[in-house]
Design a protein around this nucleic acid. Sequence first.
RNA 1: GGUUCAGUAGCUCAGCUGGAUAGAGCAACGGCCUUCUAAGCCGUAGGUCGCAGGUUCGAAUCCUGCCUGAAUCACCA
Length: 594
Amino acid sequence: MEKTLIRNIEDAVKGLYGQVPDISKLQIQETRKEFEGDITVVVFPLLQYSKKSPEQTATDIGNYILDVNPGIDSFNVVKGFLNLRLNKRALMQVFNGLMQSGKKDFFSDNAGGAVTLVEYSSPNTNKPLHLGHIRNNLLGYSLSRILTACGHRVYKTNIVNDRGIHICKSMLAWKLFGEGKTPADTGIKGDHFVGKYYVEFENAYRKEIEKLVSGGLTPEEAAERSELMAEARELLRKWEAGDRETVELWQMMNSWVYEGFDATYRELGVDFDKIYYESDTYKKGREIISYGLKKGLFYKKDDGSVWVELSGEDLDEKLLLRADGTAVYMTQDLGTAVERYNDFSFERQYYVVGNEQNHHFKVLKIILKRLGYEWAGGIHHFSYGMVNLPEGRMKSREGKIVDADDLLATMFTTASEMSDELGKLHDFSREEKERIHRKIGLAALKYFILKVDPRKNMLFNPRESIDFNGNTGPFIQYTYARIRSVLRKAGEYEGKDGDIHDDPELNEKEKELIKLLGRFDDIIADAAEMLNPSIIANYVYDLAREFNQFYHDYSILGEEDVSVRLFRIRLSDISGETIKRAMWLLGIDMPERM
RNA sequence: GGUUCAGUAGCUCAGCUGGAUAGAGCAACGGCCUUCUAAGCCGUAGGUCGCAGGUUCGAAUCCUGCCUGAAUCACCA
């Protein structure tokens, strides 16, 4: 419709004023609710061609469109705004188009699409996942689905940070205090089990430092003198040297962590096509760095550390390899990027990583380009904001975190309590009920996080943030469940599969629904272009709200006119499908009943 | 100090590639279940869009300066 209008306007300006307008400046928008009409053309940009008043120009163009466009019934002019009224024929055309395409499979036409990698999650193996990871996972998963819907061939990847001093700390604490226990012995989930020893290390280390400081050392001297830290470093050195006992311990503890992560990922409903491990890719990173050294792209300092000079890019020099030859963050990210390209020959790669890493990814891209990798132009840091608590930033060392498993469990129990109170699922088995409660709890959490613009820091208040009413996931699910309920009952009505003979007269709610539904494809494209799932979330909320108003104001199955009833059933059907598809893009499942 | 991002109702957030009288939800108050699921619908109240300039027919939106907050500029990953 919009495209037709743009052509109409172009023709109008040519015909009326003898000039070719710059259509990129055209402003066409939804008519605001306070005014009469459906689509509004802002005519101010056209005054330069008409050399007439805004009102006169709008009237001229309105008349022209009325003549040539059979979908427009009437128009009115308010100041410089030309409000066009769509007729039933135009709207039914949109509706019929939706009936054709509105249920199509998002995977149907991406066989030849651009190969696109999305990296997300990126956990460290020394502690369990927390709320920050949840935001990361949800954004990554949703982004993958949105890009898929836009024709990309998407591969979801994860880089597991499984090596380094942090895991050595957990290993050391387990050796010192673990008494040979395992997650199976203690009944503690593997990632929490290992995380417990990381905390024990930090506590013991802090005590050691305090003792040294009270003995008269400065904190810096104390840190250098720390035996615990020295032992942890020794473990790291042994690990890099391939010491068998150390490597076996490392493997055992990591395997515990992975069991735990897998469980959390399963609960969250996210998955990956390929998982990379830093313990593999850092080696590749080292190779790349010696190659860069040979090429003169990097340089070695006297102590043996390797650097790259970035002052030409308004940045400082950046360390690539420590003096003792061990790897840093950048080392392994260079290796991972190259391995990924070797594996996938991707056109695009999105790194879903918090905005605290903005600098890192800027540097990563520059270095890859200097190394001559042309594909480096296709990598992009999907930078998102932090999740803050009412008391400020989450700090795992101080225990001020929201644990992912705890949070998920809370969501499920809250959903159960709420549902039991309403008592609508009394005829379901316990297992069925639980499955639905999980869907609802997850939807509440996922929607809460995804409805916020990813770039922004957001606030999570454990006591107040998770709601099940209003602009929430459960509200949208509820709308869907209502629609499904109507459609189940619609089976009893005759003529369900027949044709709608005469286009029905459309009421305001039906018109609004059709217009909203007609925008869905543009919304998906917008979300993909802006890399912003919240656009989908806000759209689906508007849609659900609009449907609830329609549902409240008009009877669907109680409508006596067969043609109108059939139309409303189908409108409900397509609304439900669109809600479901939109929520799918957010990674949120819909219950048939709730 | 440099760079980047943010500041909209009591709270959480939309709106930001310039368009009409700035929107939702929560919280507060008041209505609507004998009728397709009340996790719903309707209404009341709530705003100097951080501040000051500028650009223009028009600025929450663009530009400049300032204020406030966050992140980063690390041999922690």
